[in-house]
Each structure stands twice: as structure tokens, then as C-alpha cells.
């Protein structure tokens, strides 16, 4: 029987797959440099010239890609670049396991393989006209940089923008110089803090990231708050959002899980019945209240 709204089928009623979602695309490392002691920045370009522009413009901030190397496995990484600056994909990768150790051995011009982009990403269109409040902790700056740069590239479409970023020490801060330069801009507010400063040279705030909320001045009902950081951080930051009066469904967070497919099949990222790879990784505070064990 032919059904309305069915997936694309052939005449026998069998679903047709045009592109194998498991097949990785080859890319080349254009540039790499260390952001901190154990986090490295990779700029990569899809090798197939026909795909470069379509792939790097048709994604949303907050989406991730499955990055792989033959015999080292495959893992999800947030895209830290923005679709408003197409041509390249950027990733911040921390050396923690088998795959990332192999990635750290690569030189510029070496190949890596990508699938994606996957995940829901941030609903940037729904944020138009609203004040934005970003709170990042540690490596959480990687996915948030994508949406922050997007908002700054289309600055006129958004209200006030606040960016609060906390790291353990000045040496652990990702994109330190980039954010230093951003502090000089007068069209948005960027506040940086470190938990401790062994160098004694840190010119800005010292303390946990929530201590930066004293600078925040937004129209609560008309604000979208976005948080990403280590698991322990969420509760404290969310409490601050609620204190300001931001509604639950305006509070977004992007979460980490183990993933092997990225397309809602392998099950390893499942939380209750939600697959983080397709129903996330961006969730609202309402989702967190509704779906147990999400954070």
C-alpha cells in the first residue's frame, strides 16, 4: 500500500537510501595548533570540491561530526566553527583516548574522515531578536564558540549579547587571544574568569564562572541562555539563570554522550527514550526536567 509521508520508496514500497549515512567523507587537515596543554585546534577541509561549500554552509551551530581514522575508531566532536564562515570545519579536540591520541599524531595535510553534521543544533532562527547569554566552562567553549561567532556575524539580528567564560587557569582557557580581542568590541559583553591564577598575570576576574553573573543585565523574558561545560557546572549555572528569571524552555544546554553512529541507531547515547545524537545534543531545561538522567 502506498502511504502518504512515507520515506522515499521505490515501486515495490522498499525504502530507498540515496547516501549511506555510515560512509565517511575524506577531509584534509589545513591547520592545527595547540590551544592548551591537552587541547588541540584542527581546521579541516573536505577533499571533494563539490561538497566543500554545501557541507560547510548547511549546518547549525551546536551540531557535531563523527570524526574517524581507520583502525582508531570514530567519535563525535562538536563543530566549533560557524556556518556563517564556510569553507572549513573546525574542531577542538582533547587528548583523552585511543582516537584522540592518534589524531594528535597527525600532521598538517594529513587525511581525516568525517560524517555529518549530525544532531539538532541550536535553533538559531528562534533566537532572532532575543538577548543572548552564553556561559561556558572549560572545553564547553568549543560548541558555544560556534553559536557565538554565528550571532556576532549576524549581529543585527540579536539583542544584547553576554558571553561568560570560566576556565581553571589562564593556561586552560581555549581561544584565549581570540576572546581577549573580543573584549575590546563594544557591541557585546565578554567576561572571562579563571578559578586560580598561578601566573599572577591574569588581568580579569578570578573565581568560578557564576561570579560573573553580577555583570549580566538582560531582559529575562526575552533572553535565550546557553550553557556548556563540565557536568558539575550545570546545576549552579542553571540556578543563576532561574534567579534572573529566564524561562525553562529558553535555557539551552549541549550534552556529551558516547556515540557510535550519530544517526539514532546504535543506542549508546540513549537517555530514557531520547537518542542524544538525533534528539540532542542541544536540550532545554524543560527536557532536563522531563527526561530523567539527562544531566
Amino acid at each position: 500500500m502506498l502511504k502518504a509521508n512515507a520515506p522515499k520508496c521505490n515501486i515495490r514500497g522498499n525504502v530507498v537510501v540515496e547516501e549511506n549515512p555510515y560512509l565517511p567523507e575524506r577531509a584534509r587537515i589545513v591547520r592545527k595548533f595547540d590551544l592548551t596543554r591537552d587541547v588541540r585546534f584542527f581546521q579541516v577541509r573536505i577533499c571533494d570540491p563539490d561538497k566543500v561549500m554545501t557541507w560547510t554552509t548547511n549546518y547549525k551551530p551546536g551540531q557535531f561530526m563523527m570524526v574517524s581514522l581507520p583502525n582508531a575508531g570514530e567519535a563525535p566532536f562538536s563543530i566549533t566553527s560557524t556556518p556563517s564562515r564556510p569553507g572549513l570545519f573546525e574542531f577542538c579536540i582533547r587528548k583523552v583516548g585511543r582516537l584522540t591520541s592518534k589524531l594528535f599524531e597527525l600532521k598538517e595535510n594529513d587525511y581525516i574522515w568525517l560524517r555529518g553534521p549530525f544532531g539538532n543544533g541550536f535553533p538559531v532562527e528562534m533566537m532572532y531578536g532575543k538577548d543572548l547569554l552564553f556561559v561556558a566552562g572549560g572545553l564547553g567553549a568549543a560548541p558555544l564558540r560556534s553559536v557565538l561567532l554565528y550571532a556576532l556575524d549576524y549581529r543585527d539580528r540579536f539583542g544584547k549579547i553576554f558571553y561568560l567564560y570560566g576556565a581553571r587557569t589562564p593556561d586552560d582557557m581555549l581561544f584565549r587571544e581570540e576572546f581577549f580581542r573580543m573584549k575590546e568590541r563594544d557591541d557585546f559583553e565578554c567576561y572571562l574568569t579563571v578559578d586560580a591564577d598561578p601566573t599572577g598575570l591574569w588581568p580579569f576576574d578570578i573565581g568560578v564562572v557564576t561570579s560573573l553573573f553580577k555583570y549580566v543585565n538582560v531582559d529575562a523574558d526575552n533572553t535565550v541562555a546557553i550553557v556548556c561545560g563540565p557536568p558539575v557546572m550545570y546545576k549552579y549555572v542553571v540556578d543563576e539563570f532561574l534567579k534572573i528569571g529566564i524561562p525553562d524552555d529558553h535555557i539551552f544546554m549541549t550534552l556529551e554522550r558516547k556515540m557510535k553512529c550519530g544517526i539514532g541507531k546504535c543506542g549508546q547515547c540513549v537517555v530514557e527514550h531520547k537518542y542524544t545524537c538525533v534528539d540532542g545534543p542541544v536540550f532545554t531545561l524543560w527536557d532536563v526536567k522531563n527526561i530523567r538522567t539527562l544531566i
Binding site: V96, K258, Q268
Partner: peptide
């Protein structure tokens, strides 16, 4: 190892949590 991410953090360390996931996914989530 099902819910363990690189770096060793396990979202479901306890066996009871993993069992609970199976039953809630089968009978509620689905």
C-alpha cells in the same frame, strides 16, 4: 562500557541503572 565516554566518565556506573535503562526504554520510552 555502554555509557562510558573517553576519559572514563560513566553515565551509568551502577548495574541497577543499566537494568533500569533497559526496562524503561522497552516499556516506557518506546
Amino acid at each position: 562500557e555502554y555509557s562510558m565516554v573517553a576519559g572514563g566518565h560513566n553515565f551509568r556506573e551502577a548495574r541497577s541503572e543499566r537494568l533500569k535503562l533497559w526496562y524503561t526504554h522497552k516499556l516506557v520510552g518506546f
